[in-house]
C-alpha cells in the first residue's frame, strides 16, 4: 500500500491536520518540576548507596569476626589435641615404668624363694 494522498481534498485535509497537530508549548513550570524531581531522585539514589555501603561494611565486619572466631576455635582444638597427645605419652611412659617395676619385683620375689 503506497502512502500517498488519495486526492487533492485528502491532501488539504492532511495539511489541516498537520497544522492542527503542531507541537504545543510545554507548560512554563514543567522544566522546574522535572529538575526538582531529578534532584530528589538523585538524593534518594545516594541515600540508598550509602545504606548499601554501610550494610556491606557491617556484613564484612561480621564475616571477619566469624572468620576470626573459627580460627580461634581451630587453635583451641589444636592445643587440646596437643595436650591429649602429651597425656597419652605420659601414660605410656608411666605404663612402661610400672611394667618394669612389676618385672623387677617378680624377679626379686623369685630370688627370695
Amino acid at each position: 500500500m503506497e502512502f500517498e494522498p488519495l486526492n487533492d481534498f485528502e491532501s488539504e485535509f492532511e495539511q489541516e491536520l498537520r497544522q492542527a497537530l503542531e507541537r504545543r508549548p510545554a507548560p512554563p513550570s514543567l522544566k522546574g518540576k522535572i529538575l526538582a524531581r531529578r534532584r530528589g531522585a538523585r538524593l534518594g539514589r545516594r541515600t540508598v548507596l550509602w545504606q548499601r555501603l554501610a550494610a556491606s561494611l557491617v556484613l564484612a565486619a561480621v564475616l571477619g569476626g566469624a572468620a576470626e572466631w573459627q580460627q580461634h576455635v581451630r587453635e583451641e582444638r589444636r592445643k587440646g589435641e596437643e595436650a591429649r597427645q602429651q597425656v597419652m605419652i605420659a601414660l605410656r611412659i608411666t605404663g612402661h615404668a610400672l611394667e618394669k617395676m612389676n618385672q623387677q619385683l617378680a624377679a626379686h620375689d623369685r630370688a627370695q624363694e
Binding site: 507541537r23 504545543r24 510545554a26 514543567l30 522544566k31 518540576k33 522535572i34 524531581r37 531529578r38
Partner: peptide, 28 residues
C-alpha cells in the same frame, strides 16, 4: 525536547495534567 514530549503525551491521552506527569516521568 519538552514541547515534543508534552505534545505527544497530550495528543495521545487528551489530558493536559496527565501529559505533564508523563513528560516528567520521561525525562527522569
Amino acid at each position: 525536547h519538552q514541547s515534543m514530549v508534552f505534545s505527544l503525551a497530550w495528543r495521545m491521552t487528551g489530558d493536559r495534567g496527565l501529559a505533564e506527569e508523563i513528560a516528567q516521568d520521561v525525562f527522569l
